[in-house]
């Protein structure tokens, strides 16, 4: 248990007294280069470094010890206090149905997470996976793994959709979460999720977690003849798979991924940082780099239009281009460079 806050200065003072009493090793404290021979640092040696914050006496007449900062008003707190706990604390008014969630999910989520929550590429799988937690390659989805529905609401609200976090209304979040629960067979297709019923939803894996029991293994520091040398077998050799980028230290391969880190080509760098997530594989209807057919009609509009769409965002028939790919810190020129890069590689 933690100590009471009033008790803290006392505890700190006690630590300082121990220090002053000389229970540190002067040779170590003063000699940063001192390399002790052997195991001279044991549990009986107290801290070499003593770095405590100065704490003035508590003055009952003051607000706090220092009085720095300003009061957080209820309005300020309300705007930022977005967390939701398993008991439902923090949920706002609102509701959303599975039926309302379906089109929202397909528009906002399916490009990465798949229409059935199956996950595109390496984007997270959200649904299914029941019975796989004890198997090789377990599928940890909302249904198979997440212990509380509150976490789904909290996370979708705070961090999704990936390209435009905190852009959904509360009702939209309720609807999308309802649909996610439906995709995981936790609620029926007529379900309506509300502030009042969310905490009551029993997630299948809710009892599947327990507090860290480590240390859970006990090795011993054997020094001599610890095992039979003939018994040693090499069970894995990392070079067998060939999945590591190694060109930076193995001279026998083409320069690869690492070359881009210092690539002077602005367009390429911006593309990789901001655009490749969608434009490499065609997520969310994005035209794929290098696919001439996909770019032809777009290029016909002229470069100025393409850049304008990339900078300010664009809702097209194929999908939605968020302003600057969601990376609003990019300058217009950086975005334009990326557009030039993508279109150039499409016309090669």
């Amino acid at each position: 248990m933690y100590r009471s806050t009033r008790g803290l200065p006392v505890a700190v003072a006690a630590a300082a007294v121990l220090f002053i009493a000389g229970r540190f090793v002067p040779a170590l404290a003063g000699d940063t280069g001192g390399a002790p021979e052997g195991p001279t640092i044991g549990p009986e040696v107290p801290a070499v470094e003593i770095s405590l914050a100065y704490r003035p006496e508590l003055d009952p007449g003051r607000a706090g010890y220092y009085g720095f900062g300003t009061t957080a008003t209820p309005e300020m707190i309300a705007g930022w206090d977005i967390d939701v706990r398993p008991d439902g604390t923090g949920l706002p008014e609102g509701s959303g149905s599975v039926e309302e969630g379906e089109p929202l999910y397909e528009e906002q989520c399916a490009a990465c997470h798949g229409f059935f929550g199956e996950g595109e590429g390496r984007w997270p799988k959200l649904a299914g996976g029941y019975g796989t937690l004890t198997e090789a390659r377990p599928e940890k989805t909302i249904g198979s793994y997440w212990p509380y529905a509150s976490t789904v609401w909290d996370y979708v609200h705070r961090a999704m959709p990936f390209f435009e976090p905190q852009s959904l209304t509360d009702d939209e979040v309720y609807a999308i979460v309802a649909y996610l629960l439906y995709l995981n067979d936790i609620v029926g297709d007529d379900f309506v999720l509300t502030r009042d019923n969310l905490a009551g939803i029993e997630m299948p894996h809710r009892d599947g977690f327990f507090v860290d029991p480590r240390p859970d293994v006990q090795n011993v520091a054997c020094m001599k003849d610890c095992k039979d040398p003939d018994s040693i077998k090499i069970t894995w050799d990392s070079t067998d798979l060939g999945v590591t980028p190694t060109e930076f230290f193995k001279g026998d391969e083409e320069e690869g991924e690492t070359a881009t880190a210092a690539d002077p080509n602005l367009g390429l760098n911006v593309y990789q940082q901001a655009c490749a997530t969608c434009h490499k594989g065609g997520l969310a209807g994005a035209p794929i780099v290098g696919d001439r057919d996909q770019w032809r009609t777009r290029l016909a509009q002229g470069m100025d239009v393409l850049v304008e769409h990339a900078v300010n965002g664009y809702q097209g028939s194929a999908g939605y281009m968020p302003p600057k790919g969601g990376q609003i810190q990019l300058t217009d020129e950086e975005v334009a460079a990326a557009v030039r890069y993508m279109t150039a590689s499409a016309s090669e």
């Binding site: 509150s150 977690f209 327990f210 480590r214």
Partner: peptide, 27 residues
């Protein structure tokens, strides 16, 4: 009480062979 956020439930929990998972594996 803890909030059971995404990064302490879906992620950063340690799945064991019996299908249960360790939580708050801080150290």
């Amino acid at each position: 009480q803890p909030w059971y956020q995404r990064e302490e439930t879906s992620k950063y929990t340690d799945l064991m062979p019996d299908g249960r998972a360790r939580k708050f594996t801080f150290v």
